[in-house]
């Protein structure tokens, strides 16, 4: 089961669910498969650990990263650049939006409704059951409702991102897969893919995983750790 996404894909989810790592790695994966990728950092609510921190690594791979102008990069202000509505009006290849956390972060999407008129974007909710506030199926469904209300959009799929960062084990991934499946069933929408740290990909028993698996190479790391190398090789495996 290869992971294949195109058109407008909007990544939403609770604070700290891993939206940005997922968006960065999804961009790299689709770029490696030959799809033109534009990634916009729409996190207007939190000034730490944002897509912009990986912009150089992404641009080196030829991925177009849409950010506020450099001089506003560290501003604690919600800046929405006009380029974003432009890329939504004329999407090509994969047009990826990395949105801020919770319903608060998703509010920005309502402002982009005009630009997306007549389009059918995929809105994907990232879930990590190891985070507070999204540790039960009903909590994930409540988060979904809250995001949909503020974004004025419907969430169309789930991304399972169960992890404890570098302490993640294959057992966590399998438990997370089962959890994500239950959330997707309860919401009556597909589980689009799950993630695994790239280092665990070969050790993961995928026979019972019935969706694509995206290998994550961690980019948003504290300064005493090194980001994983974003290679251009295929980063998703057969499920």
């Amino acid at each position: 089961m290869e992971l294949e996404l195109s058109g407008i894909v909007i990544i939403v989810g609770a604070y700290g669910s891993g939206k940005t790592e997922v968006a960065i790695n999804l961009a790299v994966h689709m770029n490696a498969r030959g799809t033109a990728v534009r990634l916009a950092d729409l996190d207007l609510v939190n000034p730490y650990f944002r897509t912009r921190e990986a912009r150089q690594a992404l641009r080196r791979l030829g991925i177009d990263v849409v950010l506020p102008p450099d001089r506003y990069m560290h501003a604690d202000l919600p800046i929405l650049t006009p380029e974003v509505s432009g890329m939504l009006r004329h999407p090509s290849g994969l047009t990826l939006l990395d949105v801020g956390g919770d319903d608060v972060g998703a509010t920005v999407l309502a402002a982009l409704a005009d630009a997306m008129e007549g389009k059918t974007p995929q809105v994907l909710q990232v879930i990590n059951p190891n985070r507070p506030h999204t540790d039960t199926v009903s909590a994930c469904l409540m988060m979904r409702q809250a995001i949909e209300a503020r974004a004025r959009m419907t969430i169309t799929g789930i991304i399972g991102n169960a992890n404890f960062m570098e302490e993640t084990t294959t057992r966590d991934i399998l438990a997370g897969y089962a959890f994500s499946t239950r959330v997707a069933e309860a919401a009556n929408i597909p589980l689009v893919f799950i993630t695994t740290p790239a280092a665990l990909l070969t050790r993961l028993d995928k026979k019972d995983i019935h969706c694509p698996v995206l290998a994550l190479r961690r980019q948003l790391v504290p300064p005493w750790k090194r980001a994983d190398t974003l290679d251009a090789g295929a980063s998703a495996s057969k499920g």
């Binding site: 604070y15 700290g16 990590n128 190891n130 985070r131 507070p132 540790d135 404890f164 960062m165």
Partner: peptide, 14 residues
């Protein structure tokens, strides 16, 4: 059990 938290959240819970 073990949970993945931001420092700020963990301070509140603590």
């Amino acid at each position: 059990a073990k949970v993945l938290m931001k420092g700020n959240e963990a301070i509140g819970e603590a």
